[in-house]
């Protein structure tokens, strides 16, 4: 960075970001104990990191382990810091950057799926159109009466975004999404 661009007058520095920001998916294995999610979220808010999506559930009942899947966005430097900072939290067992691993395996990104419920209200032609499109997207009807449908759709984030956009003019009134669950291809865990 050029010295003239550096603001003076402070021991704190505002550096112009030169690295490009990337979206990564992190998989964090933690002890399922009270407050563990608050520790993880507090780290992100306290240090100014982004959370784009967050999913958490106990995955190994005997060992009381939960898996937290976080989609975050930052420069490679920040992403590396996020991983190190997460690893410092005492109940965190391990942190894996699934996006980095996917690239090592020669893929663009890890397998990512999200489940979404949509409530669509409508009558007549709109209603028929909604049903036809839902069929095209392989969404399922899980509840309906003569004036509404609730669709369930599973898939990549982009597909869900597209489905939501499609349903909007057809009477979409409520959306609920789970956030991303992710895993890498191949036999290795």
């Amino acid at each position: 960075m050029n010295a003239q661009h550096q603001p003076t007058g402070s021991a704190y520095f505002i550096e112009k970001e030169t690295e490009t920001r990337e979206t990564h998916t992190l998989s964090v294995l933690v002890d399922n104990e009270p407050g563990v999610l608050a520790r993880v979220i507090g780290l992100f808010s306290g240090r100014g990191y982004n959370i784009e999506s967050l999913t958490v559930s106990e995955t190994e009942h005997e060992e009381h382990l939960s898996r937290i899947t976080i989609v975050t966005r930052g420069t490679p430097h920040v992403l590396e810091q996020i991983k190190s900072q997460l690893e410092r939290i005492v109940p965190v067992h391990n942190v894996r950057d699934l996006t980095v691993r996917a690239r090592e395996l020669g893929h663009d990104k890890p397998l990512e799926r999200e489940l979404c419920l949509l409530k669509v209200r409508g009558k007549g032609e709109h209603r028929m159109e909604a049903l036809r499109l839902a069929d095209a997207f392989r969404a399922q009807v899980i509840d309906a009466n003569i004036e509404h449908f609730i669709f369930e759709i599973t898939g990549r984030v982009s597909k869900i975004e597209q489905f939501i956009a499609t349903m909007k003019p057809l009477g979409l009134i409520e959306v609920c999404r789970t956030g991303v669950a992710a895993m890498n291809r191949g036999i290795d865990s």
Partner: peptide
């Protein structure tokens, strides 16, 4: 020692 720009910072 310090110019005007810096005063906006801590």
């Amino acid at each position: 020692a310090i110019d005007a720009k810096g005063r906006s910072l801590v």
